[in-house]
Amino acid sequence: MDIQSQDKSQVRLKGVKEGFYVTLDPTLPQVFLEEELTRLFNQLQHLASNSRVILDIGETQNRQDVVESLTAFLKNKYHVKSVSAPQREQQMTEDKPRKLDMPGNWHQHHTDALIIAGRVRSGQKISAKKHLVILGDVNPGSEIIAGGDILIMGNLGGTALAGQPDNEDAIILAIGFKPIQIQIGGIIAAGLPTSSAHTIEFAHVENQGIIVENYIKANPFGRLTWPVVR
């Protein structure tokens, strides 16, 4: 898969288990949105037809008109099977967030994470069922694998596989991001350009490709209005 540099396109597409997840800003001109969708869906080729599309226009917008016209557009041009709105965990009623805000409530939530400290050396392999957190460096020649996210509080020089086998929502984050190869879900990126030392970067999947971005600048989770369990 190709690697894109920091390309903050306003229409984003990613593969999910059910089909394709499209995020866009409904306030943009209709013509522009259709152009962008054409660009992205053309890349999908035969995969587009009969696929299920989830169309995410953000939370605050009430633009059913845009949804309808784009649904018609996708169905006509790419023969997608269905276009639906995302199932939103964050779409909560007024008192649900308040409940979540209560300190004790988080005890009911949990997520699996394997947290380990120390250096992972060449020839060593670590795999975690879900998330993997490493406090230390991951040396070239080693391999780390996770069902969910991989967070490395140190240098990543080895091979990292997150979201195995098919979770393209997973991310790989490291303080020194210089892996030999990474994979998220089924998407592989080899020969990543080496980045400057000690900036926190993370890799994620966007438009069927792996993108590496500065974590602080991109702030990928900053737009979640409420903390959610990963």
Binding site: R121, S122, G123, Q124, N139, P140, G141
Partner: peptide, 8 residues
Amino acid sequence: RDADRVIG
């Protein structure tokens, strides 16, 4: 790389 392996 080989030294790292042996150290492990």
